[in-house]
């Protein structure tokens, strides 16, 4: 089991100013699996997710202690560059947020930024591959140079996934990726997640327990900044060990 351990979070405490958001959280994330974080609003799911690619660095009043090991290296060490970390750990946000640029430029942004390609052909290939992986290529191949903001919500979210995939990450963090989408677009994203886990390690924050049950291999239930229970998704939903977990999944809280 330790062989395919990808991220190991150990005794993580996060503070926003004086307010503590996460209390001593420890969680293991396995390679090429989908881990879902569930729990009521304000329980710290998104905070935990953002710690994995250090997006919390942007929040000035945020203080972190504890360890997050990515392939056994602490990502918060001084020697670790957040830019390189974010190349390895891509992120998809709650609201689709394509850049106000063409579809092509949206996907090409990361590779261009990191100087990943030498020629136009390489870049074209990356863009096409990424769009194909996110299942968008067939829909947009005739309008690659039209603005990405002109797509529908579901397409925009898949464009954002393609954009994240273009820098060839190992981990994909998804912060409620379907909360702004209709059921059909949601189904497409869920199918996509199932495909993507062949190649990527995925961590998804979701409010929908059905979604967690459908897409994830492992589930972690959080409550008030604490990690209450973690385990295989089937076990959590069929036989929760903790009373709070049971209350949540049966709809009594949250």
């Amino acid at each position: 089991m330790t062989e395919n351990l990808k991220v190991s979070i150990r005794n993580l405490n996060v503070f926003y100013g004086k307010k503590q958001a996460l209390f001593d959280v420890s969680l293991n994330i396995m390679e090429k699996e989908v881990t879902s974080l569930i729990g009521p609003s304000g329980c710290g799911k998104s905070t935990l997710l953002k710690c994995i690619n250090r997006m919390n660095d942007l929040v000035e009043i945020c203080n972190i202690n504890g360890q997050i090991l990515l392939d056994s290296v602490d990502i918060n060490e001084v020697s670790q560059d957040p830019v390189l970390l974010r190349m390895k750990v891509g992120m998809v946000f709650q609201k689709p947020n394509p850049f106000p640029k063409s579809i092509y430029d949206n996907v090409a942004f990361g590779p261009r930024l990191h100087g990943m390609t030498k020629s136009k052909e390489d870049l074209d290939n990356i863009v096409i591959q990424s769009l194909s992986k996110s299942g968008l290529y067939e829909e947009v191949k005739d309008r690659l140079y039209e603005p990405g903001t002109g797509l529908s919500g579901g397409q925009q979210q898949r464009l954002c996934i393609a954009r994240a995939l273009a820098v060839n990450p190992q981990i994909l963090l998804m912060d409620e990726p379907c909360s702004a989408l209709d059921p059909i677009a949601t189904a497409k994203i869920e199918d996509l997640i199932a495909e993507l886990k062949q190649q990527y390690t995925i961590v998804i924050v979701t409010h929908s327990m059905q979604q967690a049950a459908r897409v994830s291999d492992r589930t972690a239930y959080m409550h008030m900044g604490e990690l209450i229970e973690t385990g295989m998704t089937k076990t959590i939903f069929s036989n929760p060990q903790h009373e709070k977990t049971q209350d949540y999944i049966t709809g009594r809280i949250g």
Binding site: M55, R86, M91, F93, F99, P100
Partner: peptide, 27 residues
């Protein structure tokens, strides 16, 4: 300027200065 655009750029590994000159200022 919507913070989501800046977050997206930073999430892809853009530095603060790249984000400001690439997105914040043009927008």
């Amino acid at each position: 300027v919507p913070p989501s655009i800046e977050e997206a750029a930073i999430g892809l590994g853009a530095s603060k200065v790249q984000t400001i000159f690439g997105f914040t200022l043009p927008l």
